[in-house]
């Protein structure tokens, strides 16, 4: 599609090509997607190599500065995985973690994005809120754990609060950044077309900031998981972070790796979800 646009408004002189056979279509598809296929192939090989190295290090119990004596092998982890997926308790851990992320992150987005937009547009709001945000922002979410336990009546609420805090500041700061980069010429163009304050906000400032808002959401989601796992390890009773820590206490070494991998997969999945949402909301940026 884009190729047509770049060619300009010249009349199409070439007659439509006859329908291609399946073979030529497949060949063309391969030529166009060669780079992507290559990256995928190398990615798969690299992951397999990682598994192989892990397997070798653990089966031969290598001790070379780090000790692999007690580290579970990939096969042991796989065995505990097949057991765990039939265990409702493991699934509950995962479900609870996801729920905490969902609530904490959603609250952060619902509060952080509009606040950032308003701070970016109205100087007074920025001047009042920004100093407080700057003082609180460098405090890692984990450092909030004792305070959160005091603040909230239940453990569950304090964990969600920590998750919220972790994602809130990246979302707020990136939204603000996006607002500060809005091209003033676009605002002028809108004014010349009769747009008033509210329309300019909705039609110019908001869409212009969306790419940075989504950067904030992606970063915020990552920090949300970091904060959640730390909070669950310290104060939780359930959740995938608690599961991983409990496995260590119970000397179930394979479950440690299983917990870690589960956290990794969940983190990856949630950031993919955000990226997908971003492409859906910003069709002009996908090529």
């Amino acid at each position: 599609m884009p190729a047509i646009a770049e060619a300009g408004p010249l009349p199409a002189v070439t007659p439509p090509a006859p329908p291609a056979s399946f073979g030529t279509l497949a060949l063309r598809w391969y030529r166009l997607n060669r780079a992507g296929l290559r990256a995928t192939a190398i990615g798969v090989i690299s992951l397999l190599a990682f598994l192989l190295v892990w397997h070798l290090l653990t089966t031969y119990r290598v001790v070379f500065f780090v000790r692999f004596t007690n580290v579970p092998s990939p096969l042991a982890v796989y065995a505990s995985f097949t057991k765990a997926i039939h265990d409702p308790k493991f699934l509950m851990h995962i479900l609870l973690s996801c729920r905490r992320i969902f609530i904490g992150f959603s609250l952060a987005a619902i509060i952080g994005v509009p606040l950032g937009l308003i701070m970016g547009r109205f100087k007074l709001v920025h001047e009042v809120i920004f100093p407080v945000a700057e003082v609180l922002r460098p405090i890692p979410a984990i450092a909030w754990v004792p305070m959160a336990i005091m603040l909230w009546p239940t453990n569950e609420q304090s964990i969600v609060f920590i998750t919220f805090l972790g994602s809130f500041f990246p979302i707020l700061v990136n939204t603000l950044h996006g607002m500060s980069l809005v091209d003033p010429v676009l605002v002028r163009a809108a004014q010349c077309l009769g747009a008033r304050e509210r329309s300019i906000f909705r039609e110019v400032y908001f869409p212009a900031s969306l790419p940075h808002i989504f950067t904030g959401l992606t970063v915020g989601m990552g920090v949300a998981w970091v904060s959640l796992i730390a909070a669950e390890m310290i104060s939780g009773q359930y959740g995938i972070g608690y599961f991983t820590w409990e496995a260590y206490s119970l000397v179930q070494y394979a479950d440690i790796a299983l917990g870690m991998i589960a956290i990794g997969v969940l983190g990856l999945g949630s950031s993919l979800l955000i990226r997908g949402a971003g492409q859906l909301v910003m069709p002009w940026r996908s090529t």
Partner: peptide
Amino acid sequence: QYSLFPWK
């Protein structure tokens, strides 16, 4: 600078 809205 043209100043078209890129999202439209």
